[in-house]
Simulated scan of single mutants.
Amino acid sequence: MSPFRRGVAGVIVAAAAVFAIATPASAHDQLLASTPGDGEQLAVAPTSVSMTFSGELLVLDESAAGAVVLVVDESGTDWTDGPVTVSGSTVTAALRPDMPVAGYQVRWQVVSEDGHPISGVIPFTVGDAEPLALAGAQPSGERESSDTAASDQIADETDGVLRTLIVAGGGAALAVAAFALYRFLRRPRTAAAPPESGAAADDL
């Protein structure tokens, strides 16, 4: 293979490697586990809630700004007690004592390692109670925060669609380039034509 062909092949391989590495790195962090778990029924009220994510979460300062955790009942009462603690990929929030038998929701929002806010809801129950539906009442003071979280979620989904389109377009371009390289490498070399006998005779 000629140096030119080796160079073209190297460029295409390098571009493919960049796409392969960059694509998973752009994904948001995911919730891996929580205590209480999703839909868990507890015999006694918990003293705290904790969540573990797939990456190290971002915080704006030592007060864990950017991380929000609410534990609400059907009436919208928040049972968290004190500030939220963020340590690496773990978020913890203490709870007030004497939580009654009822259904609850852990409503959380954190800042992913890639800088995007992510949020979710974890339902659980204490005692023999009905689970709290996802459409349960919200405290009036938290409605604005909930609307903001919904807007951030929509922005995240739009960003994900655009990222998918960009990656798909890049993959298609690489496929076309690889096919062109294959055709180029498979093309037979053309031998140089010998000088015509008449021209050689004239030159003598």
Rank of each mutant, 00 (worst) to 15 (best):
S140N: 13
A93T: 08
V11D: 13
L165D: 11
T85P: 02
T125I: 06
T77N: 05
A191M: 02
Q105M: 07
E40Y: 04
S87G: 07
G127N: 10
A192Q: 10
A191I: 02
I12L: 15
W108N: 11
V68A: 14
V69A: 10
A9E: 13
T35R: 12
S2L: 01
V71N: 07
P36W: 08
S197F: 00
A135S: 11
G10P: 00
E144I: 01
A175S: 12
L162F: 07
G66S: 11
D98S: 09
S75P: 06
R189D: 05
R143H: 06
A67K: 07
D29F: 04
E144D: 14
L134E: 14
E130Y: 02
A9W: 03
P123C: 04
S87P: 02
G37T: 05
R143C: 08
F184M: 01
S48W: 08
A155W: 04
W79E: 03
A22Q: 07
D159Q: 09
D128V: 03
D156T: 10
D152Y: 05
V84N: 13
P194S: 04
I166Q: 08
E40I: 01
A67F: 07
A155F: 05
Q105R: 12
S197L: 09
D159I: 00
G160M: 01
L31N: 14
E74F: 00
E40C: 01
E196H: 11
L58I: 15
V8A: 06
P46M: 09
V126Y: 05
A43N: 13
L58H: 08
P188Y: 06
A150R: 15
R187Y: 07
G76A: 08
L70D: 12
R183K: 15
P3M: 01
Y182S: 11
